[in-house]
């Protein structure tokens, strides 16, 4: 079972190394990790997807909290959060199958961002499952390259369950 951790860290050299080194040292598995600017000027937010049971998750959070460069650790539950990932994928695409591929891309609200002689580059966003599905559908055409950002996520506003279904 995988869990999402939202970790607020100092935006300083080597912080990513500290976090990933700790996860490795404690034998915690990382499925994905993404880092970027947070809402505060000198802080970055890391979104870590990690495997393991509740107890492992608990230990990961506590051990991460011990790092001086870690300001805050929160667990994000899938049911009450918005989870997104960006994928760029280049598929083989002879001119005769382009329309067919377009037909796959549309329902996923993905878009074509580069066209070559024999290939297309697509951009897609969504949760992990959606991107996995799109990848599988494109596989028969020949996948040349894939780059994914790893998951980012934010918790939905608390006590507003009626709103959460809208988006």
């Amino acid at each position: 079972m995988s869990h999402i951790l939202s970790v607020l860290v100092n935006n300083r050299p080597r912080v990513l190394a500290r976090v990933s080194s700790l996860l490795g040292q404690r034998n915690f598995n990382i499925e994905s990790i993404s880092v970027g600017q947070s809402e505060e000027k000198d802080l970055s937010r890391m979104i870590i997807v990690t495997g393991g049971d509740e107890r492992t998750l608990n230990q990961v959070s506590k051990q991460l909290s011990k790092l001086i460069d870690v300001i805050e650790v929160r667990t994000i539950t899938e049911s009450t959060s918005v989870e997104r990932e960006l994928m760029l994928i280049r598929v083989t695409s002879e001119p005769n199958v382009r329309m067919e591929i377009q037909g796959i891309v549309d329902p996923f609200r993905a878009s074509v961002v580069d066209v070559g002689h024999d290939s297309l580059m697509l951009q897609a966003t969504g949760d992990r499952a959606k991107l996995d599905t799109l990848t599988e559908l494109l596989r028969p055409y020949g996948i040349l390259e894939v780059a994914r950002t790893g998951v980012i996520a934010l918790s939905r506003e608390l006590n507003q369950t009626s709103l959460t279904t809208v988006i």
């Binding site: 500290r18 080194s21 700790l22 460069d69």
Partner: peptide
């Protein structure tokens, strides 16, 4: 040495 001692210090500085 900051890289080497990352897992064996409470914190380190360059």
């Amino acid at each position: 040495i900051t890289g080497i001692t990352m897992p064996i210090t409470k914190h380190n500085y360059l």
